[in-house]
Amino acid sequence: MLHGLAGQALAFVAALALAPLLSGWVAQCRAWLQNRTAPPLWQPWLVLHKRLLRETVVAENASPLFRSVPALVFACMAIVCTIIPTLSTDLPLAVVADAVVLVGLLALARVLLSLAAMDVGTAFGTLGARRDMMVGFLAEPVLLMVLFTAALGARSTSLASIVDVLAHRELAIMPSLAFAGVAFTMVSLAENGRIPVDNPTTHLELTMIHEALTLEYSGQHLALIEWAATLKLFAYSCIGIALFCPWGLAADDTPLALLLAVPALVAKLAIGGMLLAIAETVSAKMRIFRVPEYLGIAFVLAVIGMLIHILLGA
């Protein structure tokens, strides 16, 4: 139990520290692929540092909701990162929050952010909030279906036991997981505001989705929200790793095993980030009204994955 808590704490600290680095790594890979000079790996940390030192300016008509949302969103993402088995599957917190709660926490963060964006009453904030909700309500069932497909095999919705089962099964080809993997990749691109759906580096307000939500924020508020966004990307990457590549987790609770699991996680995240950068470089952003189609495809794939699991039992 004590070791479990230590592992949990280590996973939490690793998430907070590695999440901005993951975003920095993706940006670096993208820059290399596009023949630009890459920013340093720790650029997101420098930006966070800069924002934390700056004065926080809030609109005159902002309600208390607007001020409290950055902290709440950050808390949601931090909890999400702690209930995903990143280093070991022995997580005391995983007992209280299963896969459905995970999706709920992500939805809560999204609703809070959208409400805050509408709070000040600027046109772009409202526009971004509506678009984000549209993407969200289409993406959420896909994520649930993907998690359910994995849960069917483990006969449990607890993420820790799902990953435990997946990591310790015999080597077998599972067509259902292949479908779920494709669906999950599509939905995580959409959820993290990545290229086919949204461009994270855009300066064009009219095409923004996620950036438009945060236009009104500044200083420490913005720092928290940006940190939360990197945590979200980290959380999605970790869900993907946990479901589709669960090898290399700490086998037992000894501190040494936990510390050895960290480089494995970093290596997997590095490969995942590079693949994300490649995917973003080779594809073009789609029109916003194509997004329902894109996420509809993801949904159908996820459901077929589940059906195939039922049909083939694998």
């Binding site: 077998a172 080809i173 067509p175 479908f179 494709v182 495809i297 195939i308 694998a314």
Partner: peptide, 25 residues
């Protein structure tokens, strides 16, 4: 043999995936 059988299942699933790709392309 079991692995090859699973591989056939996987290939069948991929062909279904491609049928959907045809449907919406």
């Amino acid at each position: 043999n079991a692995l090859a059988l699973q591989f056939i299942d996987l290939l069948a699933a991929v062909s279904l995936l491609l049928a959907f790709a045809l449907l919406i392309q």
